[in-house]
């Protein structure tokens, strides 16, 4: 058998028989069903997948690959975001200049573009993924819970995008976030302009006012300023991504445990 192989085949055979290779990949080359199954089982990344799946789950026409694309974009955002963090300081003095610098002076200066357009694209792909899950009735039992996990992921994706919107600290950013967070001012009971807030009193003094309400909590003050920038930065780079990563793991795990990609009964 070995004699039929060319030089490259022989070199590959040699490499895959070394101790180092065998310690990493504990199976032969993936040309038999058994080894192909082992590829999936022995690799921590790939083993989120099942070993076998419904053929219809493979059809692009069925899933549109949208969940996968969303996940892919999440990875792209993580990597480009990490590179951006090298150059960006989340303070009003530096934030804007750092973004300008990123654009003009940093080698491979499209990182910011990829990060921003990727974020837009991710919002769209999440919506489309939800649309396809809905249109195929894929949320029906036993997948109800995973739909719920998905809804939280949807909200978190929007929050990720929104918190990132402030970071360039230009006019667009500041006012979009002002408009967005102004609504928190009107939260029932917890916002100082919201219904019921006037009734929350301790010893006759209003507890909820402009400096203590839900909006102030979000911004760390009354205006979109230094503390708002820091809060959004920390949430954007650490808080939300961790939550999303955890929930994506749950989401994928449940796709498997609920019997793989849905199909007709």
């Amino acid at each position: 058998m070995a004699s039929k192989k060319g030089d490259i085949g022989r070199i590959f055979d040699y490499i895959s028989n070394t101790q180092a290779w065998k310690s990493i990949f504990r199976h032969g080359s993936p040309d038999t069903t058994r080894n192909r199954s082992l590829v999936m089982l022995m690799n921590v990344v790939l083993h989120l997948h099942p070993v076998r799946m419904r053929k219809s789950g493979l059809r692009i026409k069925y899933t549109w690959c949208m969940g996968g694309l969303t996940f892919f974009l999440f990875l792209v955002e993580t990597i480009t975001g990490l590179l951006l963090m090298f150059y960006y300081r989340p303070t009003p003095e530096y934030a804007y200049i750092d973004i300008q610098y990123l654009r003009s002076d940093v080698p491979l200066g499209v990182m910011r573009e990829i990060h921003r357009w990727g974020a837009h694209a991710m919002v769209i792909t999440v919506w489309l993924h939800m649309l396809r899950v809905f249109m195929t009735g894929a949320y029906k039992p036993p997948r109800e819970f995973n739909w719920g996990v998905g809804v939280i992921l949807l909200v978190l994706t929007l929050l990720l995008s929104f918190s990132g919107y402030l970071l360039p600290f230009d006019q667009l950013a500041m006012w979009a976030v002002t408009v967005g967070t102004n609504m928190a001012r009107a939260t029932p009971l917890l916002g100082h302009e919201g219904p019921g807030a006037a009734f929350i009193k301790v010893g006759g003094v209003n507890v909820i006012h402009a400096a203590t309400d839900a909006r102030a909590l979000l911004l760390g003050g009354r205006i979109v300023g230094a503390s708002a920038l820091l809060r959004f930065y920390v949430l954007h780079c650490i808080g939300f991504p961790l939550a999303v990563a955890f929930l994506i793991a749950v989401h994928f795990w449940r796709v498997r445990k609920d019997g793989g990609i849905s199909g007709p009964l």
Binding site: P92, Y96, I99, Q100, R103, R112, E113, R116, W117, V123, L158, S161, F162, Y165, P168, F169, D170, Q171, L172, A173, M174, W175, A176, T178, V179, G180, I223, V224, G225
Partner: peptide, 23 residues
């Protein structure tokens, strides 16, 4: 290119002020 407008200025309200498009 990704847009970058003037630096943030709390005293100058743009008209219209729009939330990000998905909101």
């Amino acid at each position: 290119g990704a847009p970058l407008e003037e630096p943030a200025n709390p005293t100058k309200t743009p008209n219209p002020s729009k939330a990000p498009w998905y909101f």
